[in-house]
């Protein structure tokens, strides 16, 4: 490398242009730079600035809108929670009321059933008593007839009504019908 590098031609004289500014180029640069700056500052930078402002405004609006929406959503949520709480209270009340009504109804039904049972029991009891009484009367009548018949056969005479009644009464008085009446007759 070293011997080869020694052969590099030294262009000291011709290289002076490197450190000397070209005046013509300076003018060109100044003029062209001025034009570029003028055009950019008139028709490009304002547009970019306006767009960035619009975007900043849009972002600001979006943030405001989001905040407003958030507040609205919070309000809706609060209202919803309040309503939910109210609904829960109401539901609890309804359930309580229904339970109370159910219990009252049940009690009423039990009472009604009990009363009906009592009523039916009394009715049955009355029916039984009536039937018993009727049966006793029937038996009494049968016994009386048999008694009359038997007496006629024994005495070979026809009894008058007064005799018959007397005899029957006598016979019946000897009989105890209280057993048939369940202890009541």
């Amino acid at each position: 490398m070293a011997p080869a590098a020694a052969h590099i031609p030294v262009a000291a004289a011709s290289g002076s242009f490197l450190i000397l500014p070209n005046i013509g180029l300076m003018v060109w640069v100044l003029v062209i730079f001025g034009i570029v700056m003028y055009v950019l500052s008139r028709s490009v930078f304002p547009q970019i600035n306006a767009m960035l402002d619009r975007r900043a405004q849009m972002i600001s609006n979006e943030i405001d809108s989001a905040e407003s929406l958030r507040k609205e959503a919070q309000e809706v949520l609060d209202e919803y929670r309040q309503r939910l709480a109210e609904a829960r209270t109401q539901a609890d009340e309804i359930v309580t009321r229904a339970r109370q009504a159910g219990e009252a109804h049940q009690k009423e039904a039990v009472e009604s059933a009990r009363a009906e049972r009592e009523r039916l029991l009394q009715q049955t009891r009355r029916d039984v008593e009536a039937e018993t009484r009727r049966a006793i009367d029937e038996i009494r009548r049968e016994v009386a007839d048999l008694t009359v018949l038997a007496t006629e056969k024994v005495t070979r005479k026809t009894l008058t009504d007064a005799d018959q009644r007397r005899l029957v009464e006598e016979a019946l008085s000897d009989l105890d019908f209280s057993v048939l009446g369940g202890g009541e007759g």
Binding site: L18, I19, L20, P21, N22, I23, G24, L25, M26, V27, V29, L30, F33
Partner: peptide, 14 residues
């Protein structure tokens, strides 16, 4: 263009 002294010099002068 900036390899010529004229370019940066005129901008620096400005």
């Amino acid at each position: 263009a900036d390899t010529n002294l004229a370019f940066p010099l005129i901008l620096s002068l400005l």
